[in-house]
Design a protein around this nucleic acid. Structure first.
Length: 873
RNA sequence: GCCCGGAUGGCGGAAUCGGCAGACGCGUCGGACUCAAAAUCCGAUUCCCUUUGGGAGUGAGGGUUCGACCCCCUCUCCGGGCACCA
């Protein structure tokens, strides 16, 4: 033993016999649980099932972060608690191992991402194992394992088959630093979510998933989920459903009609101009000759602008007049039509009716270009007062002909009704949610299992009734390219999966927006055989009959793909015929508890819901939603109150903590730090307190010989105070675990130990219950003491203590006595003593008496078993 | 700008059906043990007033109430989300 100079030689020897050797204890029990298969989950049996899921980590090269054990410990406490309560618990772990950092590492070192990733996984697994979690390691999964991504590809092909995966050439977010495109969700304030690099718009051909087809369902189902409100709110806001009206405005002097979308049909009489997005298809047809040059110039300028510039709210609005006029559908008035880039081409119809009096943006624009502002809604109740403009809230209609005096909401309905009769308006619903950009120009991701072929070859293949290539063929072909050179997407048959990521020499991305996979020539160029479904590398010679040439898709899937369905793979990690086995899915269904960071509120959690809902629709799973109960653990900050970062030098290394204090101390301390969901700073001195608690427990439970302390007596008889405190603690720990209030559960255990330490003798039963309560939090020390105290089987297999309601019932209570709301004394009385008696005793209390004597009592308040308040003049 | 969430001792945090504010831990101070130190144990620890005792106090100001950290209004600061979505 290394005494580190802390003990004298003699003292060291003496302490050795019974000191708390967490290193040895923790390693021993971790090995035991593993060998024993303590946490192996059975797919069935008589017990009710409980599935606890952690957001699986990305195994970064930096190793485990101090934040990882926070969520993992919380879920582990719940898992171990539920096991002790008699549930069949599944608590698995795996690796979300595709992603950019491994690829960037490969660029710097030349080490293949697969090799580097395997190393990182190795390290993560070891670090996590040392924390003693109740994990069923037989179910470990890895998204980069071909046997895993076989099914990621399979699900993609199902989406493709059902018309939910398509190719589109559109302006997309391109990150030059990362050399890849990014999804809307991955761009935050004009910068990449990962790495915080600038992004720009580029016109590129990309794979897109039709998540918008699920917008309504994604929104509706949120209702029934037990999720944090803020997360639900974020998803609702991201989906951005709005109900409004589409209206047709005919253009004066042409047959052209312009359809706009508005949520404020009630303000129709306040329209003083219209705006089209510069990209609107009608622009060329309506622009007058006179205005053509300035319109062309404006469109050129906007096209050159980055979206960042265009969406900058601080900038002044710009626009240009087209020379054309629309006709007001009700009044027939002429309304000038403008172009302005504050109208987005991708939302609604890309055109608006501008009502400057009741919309801040239109108001700004009208002021800038000196367009008329006409008020048609005034605030309620103040018909005399002048309503300040722009007035964007609801109110009462004015200047609106026959509808004057109507409330905004009634006005909307009335005007819509009128437009419907005239056949130029209809209800419409719009969403902010855009389809999910699904391809990345990267190497380290799942290859998209598609081969591109010429049109004739596609038609020939599609016409073969028995061709394996028809397995995932969509009703409407997916194609891209110009007429004459169009390429058509052929989905690989399931028999060709997994489509293995080929090794490449060079991981460098290209500026042109092509994946490094494009350089794997032998892999990219293939010949496929329609009748048999075979695919082989293209040869040099002429094609054999029945074979056609194709080119593999070289984009890969984004990192989110693997995490969209991993909660299902844990149920049957080795199933060879489907993503998830039928029987296992039926039994486990989905996680009952899911914990992870709030940063995934709209990314992973939205994508995973989409895939899961789709899998439900095609009958692959039996639940509509993947995650019924969700919890976000907060972030642990550095000691200086800042986010931990290498540059700040405030990073706390979990290995160092485990080495110095042990896994139990780390677990307990992370839970004790504060509310699980809160952002809270680390305190390196605070863990000393936890360490002290564990050593005190050790000293209390064991004698100098390391055997059960002589303080313990066999009979289970305790004094009343001990009995009640014990039962209160059992109750509180149970409730706190269920409600994830783990910080107060730890406090309560400390309170109990503080009390028990003061007793000369204590029943051994109390000692055992203490260990059982502690076991989910600090499993190693609990197991060790349990065995030393005579436990024959693992403490994990013992039932969780239950509180005795009889013992919880108080016989006497302290009632607080106030005079005019000020604390003046207290009386100790039997529970449920009558009001009269309590008041009488309270009045007699000498501390109270001096404050009420000689004064008139105006009122006597009595809160049973709690408080008395005398109100005196 | 809009929408959420938060603000409690020297520090992390307890206490919300409106009923003893400051549990538990850290730190600090005092004491015991020790030649001494560490470790450990015991005690004190919101602030102010000289006291037995009294007063103030949960970001600021107002309100409701016998009574407010808790409910209502106004404001300040901090954190998070969205950001021209018509």
């Amino acid at each position: 033993m290394d005494c580190k100079g802390k003990f004298s030689a003699g003292g060291c020897q003496l302490l050795m016999a019974d000191s708390y050797e967490f290193k040895e204890i923790e390693a021993r029990w971790q090995d035991f649980w593993q060998r024993d298969g303590t946490f192996r989950a059975e797919d069935g049996g008589g017990k009710p099932k409980y599935y606890v899921l952690d957001m699986f980590p990305y195994p970064s090269g930096a190793g485990l972060h101090i934040g990882h054990p926070e969520g993992y410990t919380a879920s582990d406490i719940l898992a171990r608690y539920r096991i002790a309560c008699g549930w069949n618990v599944l608590h698995p772990m795996g690796w979300d191992a595709f992603g950019l950092p491994a690829e960037q590492h490969a660029l710097q070192t030349g080490i293949a991402p697969a090799i580097n990733t395997a190393r990182n996984v190795e390290r993560f697994r070891e670090q996590i194992r040392r924390l003693g979690f109740a994990i069923d390691w037989d179910r470990e999964i890895n998204t980069t394992d071909p046997e895993y991504y076989r099914w990621t590809q399979w699900i993609f092909l199902q989406l493709f088959k059902h018309g939910l995966a398509y190719v589109d050439e559109r302006p997309v977010w391109w990150c030059q630093e990362l050399r890849t495109v990014l999804a809307n969700e991955e761009v935050i304030g004009g910068r990449s979510e990962r790495g915080d690099h600038p992004v720009e718009r580029r016109q590129l051909r990309q794979w897109v998933l039709r998540i918008t087809a699920y917008a309504e369902k994604l929104l509706e189902n949120l209702e029934g989920l037990d999720w944090p409100d803020s997360t639900k709110r974020q998803q609702r806001a991201w989906i951005g459903r709005s109900e409004g009206v589409e209206m047709d405005f005919s253009v004066d002097g042409s047959g052209e009609k312009i359809c706009i979308y508005t949520t404020r049909a009630d303000t129709l009489f306040g329209v003083t101009y219209m705006v089209l997005a510069p990209e609107h298809p009608s622009v060329d047809r309506i622009t007058t000759e006179e205005c053509a040059p300035s319109v062309a110039e404006y469109r050129r300028r906007t096209a050159a602008k980055g979206d960042l510039e265009r969406t900058d709210l601080a900038k002044e609005k710009t626009g240009v007049f087209t020379g054309a006029h629309a006709l007001h559908p009700l009044t027939g008035q002429k309304i000038p039509i403008w172009l302005a880039d504050y109208v987005l081409p991708t939302y609604g119809t890309g055109a608006i009716m501008a009502v400057p009096a009741h919309d801040t943006r239109d108001y700004e624009f009208a002021r800038r270009y000196d367009l008329p502002i006409l008020q048609v809604v005034r605030s309620k109740g103040d018909s005399e007062e002048v309503t300040p403009l722009p007035h964007c809230d609801r109110g009462v209609l004015c200047n609106s002909g026959e509808w004057d005096g109507l409330d905004s909401e009634a006005g909307k309905e009335a005007i819509l009704g009128c437009l419907e009769k005239l056949n130029c308006g209809r209800r419409a619903v719009n969403y902010k949610l855009r389809d999910w950009l699904f391809s990345r120009q990267r190497y380290w991701g799942e290859p998209i299992p598609i081969v591109w072929v010429a049109e004739d070859d596609y038609r020939a293949l599609a016409a073969l009734p028995d061709s394996p290539f028809r397995e995932f063929l969509p009703e409407t072909p997916v194609a891209h390219g110009d007429a004459g050179h169009r390429l058509f997407a052929i989905p690989l048959p399931a028999s060709q999966l997994p489509l293995i990521l080929p090794p490449v020499e060079d991981y460098h991305p290209t500026d042109s927006g092509e994946s490094p996979l494009a350089k794997a020539k032998n892999w990219v160029s293939v010949e496929i055989h329609g009748p048999t479904g075979q695919v082989r590398p293209a040869g040099d010679g002429p094609l054999s009959p029945g074979w056609v040439r194709g080119r593999r898709e070289t984009n890969t899937m984004p990192q989110w793909a693997g995490s969209c369905w991993y909660h299902l793979r844990y149920l049957s990690p080795h199933c060879a015929v489907a993503p998830v086995g039928l029987e296992e899915e039926k039994y486990w269904q989905r996680p009952d508890f899911y914990i992870g960071g709030a940063e995934h509120a709209v990314l992973h959690l939205l994508y995973a819901r989409f895939w899961h809902q789709f899998l439900y629709d095609i009958g692959a799973v039996s639940t509509r939603e993947p995650y019924q109960r969700l919890f976000h653990q907060g972030i642990i900050l550095g000691e200086d109150g800042n986010k931990m970062s290498k540059s700040r030098g405030n990073v706390v290394n979990p290995d160092a903590i485990v080495g110095e204090y042990g896994a139990d101390a780390l677990r307990l301390y992370e839970m004790f730090l504060g509310p699980l969901e809160a952002v809270k700073p680390w305190d390196s001195r605070g863990i000393e307190g936890i360490s002290r608690f564990l050593r005190r427990l050790w000293q209390w439970f064991l004698g100098a010989d390391g055997q059960l302390s002589s303080r313990f007596i066999k009979i289970f008889v305790n004094d009343e105070v001990t009995d009640r405190l014990l039962n209160e603690t059992v109750q509180k720990v149970r409730n706190d675990i269920e409600g994830m209030r783990l910080n107060t559960a730890v406090s309560q255990l400390m309170i109990l130990l503080n009390h028990l330490q003061g007793l000369r003798f204590v029943s051994i039963g109390v000692g055992r219950i203490f260990l059982q309560l502690l076991a989910p939090f600090a499993p190693h020390i609990a197991e060790e003491l349990w065995r030393r105290g005579g436990g024959k089987e693992s403490i994990v297999r013992t039932p969780f203590p239950e509180a005795d309601p009889e013992k919880l019932r108080k016989k006497m209570v302290t009632i607080v006595v106030q005079v005019n709301g000020r604390l003046r004394g207290e009386v100790y009385v039997p529970v449920d003593l009558s009001r009269e008696e309590v008041l009488r005793l309270a009045r007699c209390n000498p501390m109270v008496e001096s404050h009420i004597v000689g004064r008139e009592i105006a009122k006597e308040i009595h809160v049973p078993n709690r408080l008395v308040n005398f109100v005196v003049h």
